[in-house]
Simulated scan of single mutants.
Amino acid sequence: MGCHRAVPPLLGAARGWHQVRLSPAGGFSYLQTPMPVQQRKVKGTPSDINVIYESKDEGKANAQAGPAAVIAVSPSASPWRLSAIILGPICLILLILVIMMAQQVYQLSQKSEQQLEVIDLENIILSDTLQQLTTGKEDNCSMCEVDWDQQAASCYSFSTSAKSWHNSLDACTAISASLVKIDTKKELEFLKHEISKRVYVRQGQQFHFSFWTGLNYDNDIGNWTWADGSPFSFQLFQVPGAEGCAYMQKGDIRTQSCAKWEVYICEKPAKFGGN
């Protein structure tokens, strides 16, 4: 049987030994309890990696200290946490800036669309003016009166007051003109373009005017004729029906009773050379 002998307290405390026992060989063997250490090299790990050990009291202290203690104990994780702390607010600020820029781009796009509409309208007006100037040059400086539109050698007046077909004919005659007579495809396209620009608003809705032309159905001869008595050629356009008078609306030729009240188009020759 082995026997145990206590080591003197001062010797054990000085050397860090807690107890001894008698070995079978008759000597003493000491049971050594290592003193607490902060770091210990682990076999098989790279030389630059240390395994961190904490005593029970140190772990409790670190837990109470919070994140700062974790960063201090684990230096390898601190750069990532510091990056997250720094980059988080920066990313938030950038996101807010992107949203603000997107709103500004949207507002600018809305303004651009409105400006394009204004530019398109101005281009139409400039195109009409240029056409009139060019036409006047080709026609030996032919001119039309104020508020009359020119195309080739003719001047056109688009009325703003409505009358029946026969009263419209009389109104044109009173100003040395006649209800419009369409002779060419070019003239037809010109009239369609001018009519499409003339609209009115009623109860918040937009409507196109209906303009009387000089075309009417002659029951005596059973055919469509112009106001000056010349026959109509179906090669220019088709006229639906076989009665009434013809009018133009949104570029289409339509017919209805001559007693209806509509606005009208007067036509007369342009003046040449100031005559």
Rank of each mutant, 00 (worst) to 15 (best):
A227R: 05
D228I: 03
D228T: 12
D228P: 00
G229H: 00
S230Q: 03
P231C: 06
F232E: 02
S233L: 06
S233M: 08
F234P: 04
F234L: 03
F234D: 02
Q235S: 14
L236W: 03
L236E: 05
F237E: 01
Q238R: 08
Q238E: 09
Q238W: 09
V239E: 04
P240H: 00
P240N: 00
P240Q: 00
P240V: 02
G241V: 09
G241D: 11
G241C: 13
A242S: 15
E243I: 03
E243D: 12
G244I: 09
G244R: 14
G244C: 11
G244M: 11
G244N: 05
C245R: 00
A246F: 05
A246I: 07
A246L: 12
A246D: 04
Y247I: 04
Y247S: 08
Y247C: 07
Y247F: 15
M248L: 15
M248E: 14
M248T: 09
Q249Y: 10
Q249W: 10
K250I: 11
K250R: 14
G251A: 10
G251H: 06
D252F: 13
D252I: 08
D252H: 12
D252K: 10
I253D: 01
I253Y: 03
R254V: 04
Q256R: 14
S257L: 14
S257F: 08
C258W: 02
A259K: 11
K260D: 15
K260L: 14
W261P: 10
W261E: 14
W261D: 08
E262Q: 15
V263N: 10
V263R: 06
Y264V: 13
Y264S: 08
Y264T: 05
I265S: 07
I265Q: 08
I265C: 00
I265H: 08
C266W: 04
E267Y: 00
E267S: 10
K268C: 02
P269C: 06
P269Q: 03
A270D: 03
